[in-house]
Amino acid sequence: MNIYAIGDLHLSGNPPSKPMEIFGEHWQGHAAKVAANWQQLVTDDDTVIICGDTSWAMDLQAALTDLNWIAMLPGRKIILRGNHDYWWTSLKKMQQATENKFSFLQNNFYTCGDTAICGSRGWLLPSSESFTNDDAAIYRREGMRLEASLAAAKQAGYDDIIAALHYPPLYDAGNASIFAELLESYGVRYCVFGHIHGSDAGLVFEGIRKGITYKLVSCDTQNFMPQLVK
């Protein structure tokens, strides 16, 4: 029973209404690449964390084409919201629409054996030059959501915690953020995140910091391959 993570699938129906190859030739036919790699690696006993920006759809009904496509792939799917997931709505509505084929991660946590999977969308960090007062409010709210998830897992007795975010929690090892501080205080050992693409991958921190392994899993930065977490 393995745990994998992948992010930023950026699906848009079949045929795609928003082809991603405008962002580079490597995006050509990317859904087929994701499916082939997923089917090669993941079994029905495994879990896949999907770190946001799953579908370009503007509402839940339109997103069902993409969500149903993912549901057909092997394994349990735990999914969180990205900044482009405009279709995201209440947990109850999403669970009903997808017939409980997904575990939607928001203000809650899920378990995989003795491991708790927690998370939040995250947000732009204060160390960014473009950070505004509006960003500060969202940043604080997303911190509260992450803490609610982590606290619930701890209260339930879980010490082995994997955290999933959409936005990177750190830009470099010397930065601080509310997200990194929470991961440290709750003893998280592994954090996966997305949002970053292409050459920008070199602008965020990956590696081990204060006992936590940080890993970027945006699909295009990982050759459209789900990444083994545990």
Results as ranks from 00 to 15, higher is better:
M1V: 13
N2L: 02
I3R: 06
A5L: 05
N14I: 13
N14D: 14
P16H: 04
P16K: 07
P19T: 01
M20V: 00
F23R: 03
H26N: 07
H26K: 14
Q28H: 13
A31Q: 11
A32M: 03
A32N: 13
A35V: 10
A35W: 00
N37H: 15
W38K: 12
L41N: 04
L41I: 13
D44S: 14
T47N: 05
T47D: 05
I49K: 12
I50M: 13
A57I: 02
M58P: 00
M58S: 11
M58I: 03
L60K: 02
T65M: 03
D66R: 02
N68E: 15
M72E: 15
L73A: 07
L73G: 08
P74V: 14
K77P: 03
R81S: 12
D85W: 10
L91K: 13
N100K: 13
L105C: 12
N107Q: 10
N107P: 00
N108A: 06
D114T: 15
C118W: 05
G119S: 13
G122E: 06
W123T: 09
W123S: 15
P126F: 08
S127I: 10
S128D: 15
D135I: 00
A137I: 15
I138Q: 06
Y139I: 09
R141K: 10
R141E: 13
R141W: 12
M144W: 04
M144D: 12
R145V: 01
L146P: 04
A148M: 09
L150T: 06
A151S: 13
K154G: 12
I161C: 06
A163F: 06
A163T: 11
A163W: 02
L165P: 12
H166W: 07
P169S: 09
D172K: 05
D172R: 09
A173Q: 06
A176L: 04
I178N: 06
A180L: 01
E181L: 07
S185R: 15
Y186E: 00
G187C: 08
G187K: 11
V188R: 07
R189K: 08
C191D: 04
F193D: 03
G194N: 02
I196D: 02
H197R: 11
S199R: 14
S199V: 07
A201R: 15
A201T: 02
G202E: 15
G202V: 05
L203N: 15
K210G: 03
L216A: 05
V217I: 01
C219S: 10
Q222C: 13
M225D: 07
P226R: 02
V229F: 00
K230L: 07
